Simulated scan of single mutants.
Amino acid sequence: MKIAFYGSSLLSAYWNGAATYYRGLLRALAQKGYDITFYEPDVYDRQKNRDIDPPEWCKVVVYQGTIESLKGVAAAATEADIVVKASGVGFEDDLLLQEVLRHARRGALKIFWDVDAPATLSELRQSPEHPLRKSLSRIDLVLTYGGGDPVVDAYRGLGAADCVPIYNALDSQTHHPVREEARFTAELAFLGNRLSDREARVEQFFLEPATRLPQQRFLLGGSGWSDKPLSSNIVHIGHVPTRDHNAFNATPKAVLNISRASMAENGFSPATRVFEAAGAGACLITDYWHGIALFLKPGEEILVARDGQDVADLLGGLTRQQAKAIGQRALKRVLNEHTYANRAETADAIFRVRAAQAEAAE
């Protein structure tokens, strides 16, 4: 089956947290025989900051950030058996959705794939006339990369025919154990761009423990932090390209996951970085969110903190040997249960059933 996928970017992870998700899942689907074309706009300097070349397993079409170019690529939806419009494309999302739905052929499976369900649902609740909300009746299926029952119930309540989570996972071809690198040496490392929905939690779970442990080295990666006041034991290294993620995760004693507030509130929303870090054998410390045990076992495969004091206490009592053991258990778990090959099996089963239903309905 042919998939036309309209998303933010497959080629660049620059200000694009969904890149790893897209790459892992679409590669796994391609290995199952899907013919995939990914359409991404040239916006936010992403094409200037590519971190992969166009892959063999997926055709990538980069279009200019103009209405004319958008309409041109949307017209290609008519050639696909499955048409996917993702959230957060970054250029005229509402218009792109309308154009893609307009061009999708009769009988094609039409999917809205939400990679930030809490943010999208907040918009839909506040605006009954939101274009996506009004279009849900024309969409066959909503897929999300997290959220669990709260997100599923919310989408159904807003009129979606159905909603199914396809969770983040590990792409073991790109994220795996590597040798440690001295530049990433630290007691605790955190990688994440500065976002308003997460900044207060970064202050609580990362900056505060750093002030409590002044003799320990903390490593901060990600964009947007250059003007943030930081204690002297925090080293900010800016944007970390995907090629360096394995070493960033494998080198420190522990790696911190901090959910955005909306993700933590909804639960069942492990960030992509959870699986990236586990795939590199990192010892993960995460802020608490409902549903953690579905993915990793607290206390054995992942450490859970409810505030900054917990983070400081966990670090203070954690030896390098203990950290390595936790990381190895996490690696084993994700390789067995949480790879994109696992997720592709789920997606493939959904596509085949729903495509048959969509075809029969026409």
Rank of each mutant, 00 (worst) to 15 (best):
D227E: 15
V202P: 09
F91P: 08
A264Q: 14
A4C: 07
A189I: 03
Y145P: 00
D45L: 02
A360W: 13
A330M: 06
R329H: 15
K2N: 07
V60W: 05
F206I: 02
R27Y: 01
A250C: 06
Y21K: 08
E68S: 12
E129H: 00
L207K: 10
G88N: 14
D244Y: 13
A160Q: 00
A347R: 00
V73P: 11
T174F: 13
K2R: 15
L331E: 03
A154C: 12
A360D: 11
F351E: 04
L219Y: 02
T286M: 05
P177E: 03
Q31G: 13
D81H: 14
F295P: 03
H175E: 07
A75R: 14
E301D: 14
Q204N: 10
V164H: 08
D140F: 06
D153W: 13
P118L: 06
L335M: 10
A278S: 14
V178H: 05
V255H: 13
D313A: 11
G24T: 08
S87H: 07
D153Q: 15
P177G: 01
V100H: 01
Q64I: 01
G107R: 01
A76C: 04
N193E: 03
Y145N: 14
V62H: 00
P118W: 04
A261K: 15
V353W: 01
H130R: 07
L109M: 05
V255R: 08
R133T: 04
R243D: 05
G327Y: 00
D53T: 09
L121F: 10
L315Y: 05
L331Q: 07
L132F: 04
A154I: 09
D153A: 15
R217T: 13
L195F: 14
V334D: 09
T20D: 08
A80C: 07
A254H: 04
A161R: 14
P150I: 07
G90M: 00
A4N: 07
A19Y: 01
F218K: 09
V89D: 12
T185W: 03
Y167G: 03
G281T: 06
E92M: 15
L294K: 11
G88F: 10
T242I: 07
N246F: 08
E187N: 13
P270L: 04
A154K: 09
E345S: 13
G267M: 04
E92R: 15
E92Q: 14
N342L: 01
Y22S: 12
L141K: 06
G192C: 02
S8G: 03
A264L: 06
R156L: 13
G33M: 12
G90W: 00
L101C: 07
T272H: 01
G72H: 10
G90D: 01
A344F: 08
L315C: 05
S87Y: 04
Y145T: 13
D35A: 11
I234K: 03
N257G: 04
K110D: 05
G316E: 04
V202R: 10
L136M: 07
A4M: 01
G146A: 10
Q322E: 14
A108V: 00
S232T: 10
D35W: 06
T286R: 03
F218D: 12
R23S: 11
V60S: 09
